[in-house]
Amino acid sequence: MREKSMNNELLEIKNLEIQYVTDEEVVQAVNGIDLTLKRGESLGLVGETGAGKTTTALAILKLLPRYTGKIKNGSIILDGMDILKTSEERMRKIRGNRVSMIFQDPMTSLNPVFSVRNQIAEVLKLHKEYESGEAINDEIAGILELVGIPRIRMHEYPFQFSGGMKQRVMIAIAIACRPQLLIADEPTTALDVTIQAQVLNRIRNLKKEINSSMLLITHDLGVVASICDSVAIMYAGEIVEYGTLEDVFKPENKHHPYTDGLFGSIPNLTVKSNRLNPIEGLMPDPTDLPEGCKFHPRCPKCTERCREGVIPEAKNGSHRIKCVLYRNGDLRGRNDV
């Protein structure tokens, strides 16, 4: 394995804890996660509704709801800078410029009364200086070209675009300033499969061209397999399994029971099975999480040890699993090189 140098890491999240606090209840959205994203790497953050994926993304941009979202603990270091200690003024210069976000729903994320050109120009003008309108137009045309929209459609309005095209416009806005980090929150969930394939292809090619890192939030393991280099599986605000795509996707490796459950829940296209093997039960109530391992009430391999205390993390190179079943260095089924 390659030696990591400090400079190689773009984003480093350490022991991040986030709660949503209201008068009646405290929602424990993120409970101590550690993540590292290298330059040019794409990381898939996988989990079901309420796992804390989007909360993590919003925290990186410092966009948590002002009065309810509270970061209790931990640090987020972006390119050597501590996000949590950065002023709002500086953050505004970072958002859309060095870090940008693609949202799930292209239908509502674009402002219907501005032309596509103007929406992209808005971001560009915020973060860069231009001599003339022509210069901006050229730049915008170039960006649209990257996402596969011809220059002549520049002055059209969002309603004139189809769903897939709108999502490309969203991507164009997000990459306009060539961000170091692109956060994509379920970018293809609202799209049809054939259009999803087109958009995923675009994202994959773009990453090579603008060489940015990407944090992809999704519930779809198939999407992760097609564009990510590493994967973090989230459950109830914790990362239960983390590693390279190979670490997590290789059936021969050892896995967290939740990861196994996720894979078992997906109907397999190649093997005809009679019944799926779903995970029993439901996500726990985030205002009242279970003690010990958050997954133990649904876990088929649950032991007495899982019900309380801190659950240790087993490591093997890049592969990490938060489960009492495994020991350090013992995550490969076969002998590893």
């Binding site: 394939a197 995923l200 779809d220 198939g222 397999a225 564009i227 996707f249 894979f263």
Partner: peptide, 20 residues
């Protein structure tokens, strides 16, 4: 076009459908 959650899937679906 279906993304398959398996390791050897990547780069296999490059000849995707164009247009809408």
């Amino acid at each position: 076009a279906i993304p398959i959650p398996a390791l050897d899937y990547r780069d296999k679906h490059l000849d995707i459908l164009t247009g809408e």
